[in-house]
């Protein structure tokens, strides 16, 4: 406990020192204010446009949340089903790998035509960005499980659905969680990116807007908010991971 508090204090001191140096360099005229916004400039921007950014933050968080829910659900369900059906796995695994290698931004203009400039196109693009790695990881995770488990479950009277979701899916959980980490990071990237390309609201939109006006302070404020979303999402993922491994890894030794 004391160790943790001390570590926290050290980190805080380092952070404050860094911010102080940054501000001092700006005051001394060493930093170009258009390229590097000093902390005081960012604070000024926050006072001026704080509410706009908070509203935008809400929009972005909503989009990311929806995209995460959809990508997790579709990715895991598809991965589990495809992973347990050899024919479907053989068809879909190479396709999923191919789609992951594709720069998905190229389909964003199409989504704009389909879903408009509003939040829907961001949610859909975010989902598409994240769902494929989640599905592929789940699929390979389920495939790699020893057939003995399924045979045993069948002998015990489990039906197809029970075998998939009460035996195979939990067994594949380590692989699924690895996929969630990858996919969720891509969702956050996808949503903010799509906001920056074409939208009416959201953190990405306001970063893009203020950049074109050379309001560096506001751009940095947006960057900080986007960072905080990533940190939040990472905390949720770590929580899920810890829930899963609460008994320690040793119980996954057969």
């Amino acid at each position: 406990m004391i160790v943790r508090i001390r570590r926290l204090l050290v980190r805080l001191t380092l952070f404050l020192a860094f911010v102080g140096c940054w501000e001092a360099a700006y005051r001394a005229g060493l930093l170009n204010p258009i390229i590097f916004a000093a902390p005081s400039v960012i604070v000024k921007a926050a006072v001026k446009d704080g509410w706009t950014f908070l509203a935008a933050f809400r929009v972005t968080v909503l989009e990311i949340t929806m995209a995460i829910l959809m990508a997790w659900c579709f990715g895991i369900i598809f991965g589990v089903i495809a992973g347990s059906l050899p024919i479907l796995a053989r068809i879909s695994a190479p396709m999923l790998s191919a789609v992951i290698a594709l720069p998905l931004v190229v389909i964003y203009p199409v989504l704009l035509v389909w879903f408009g400039l509003g939040v829907t196109s961001k949610i859909v693009f975010g989902t598409i960005s994240g769902v494929f790695p989640i599905a592929l990881n789940t699929l390979t995770g389920v495939q790699s499980i020893d057939h003995g488990f399924a045979t045993m479950a069948r002998a015990m009277g489990a039906n197809r659905r029970q075998i998939m979701f009460r035996v195979m899916a939990p067994l594949a959980l380590p692989a699924i969680i690895a996929g969630l980490r990858l996919g969720t990071a891509l969702i956050v990237i996808g949503v903010v990116l799509s906001e920056m390309l074409a939208s009416t609201d959201g953190i990405g939109f306001w970063i893009s807007y203020h950049r074109s006006l050379f309001n560096t302070g506001q751009v940095y404020l947006g960057i900080i908010l986007a960072l905080s979303i990533t940190i939040l999402v990472n905390m949720i993922l770590s929580f899920v991971e810890r829930m899963h491994f609460r008994g320690g890894d040793e119980r996954f030794v057969r």
Binding site: G148, A155, M156, G157, F252, R254
Partner: peptide, 19 residues
């Protein structure tokens, strides 16, 4: 097909669910 109320099976591995 499997008749779990009449027949049970054991293998070389126990296949216990690790969680």
């Amino acid at each position: 097909g499997p008749l779990p109320e009449k027949i049970s099976v054991m293998f070389q591995e126990a296949w216990l669910l690790p969680w």
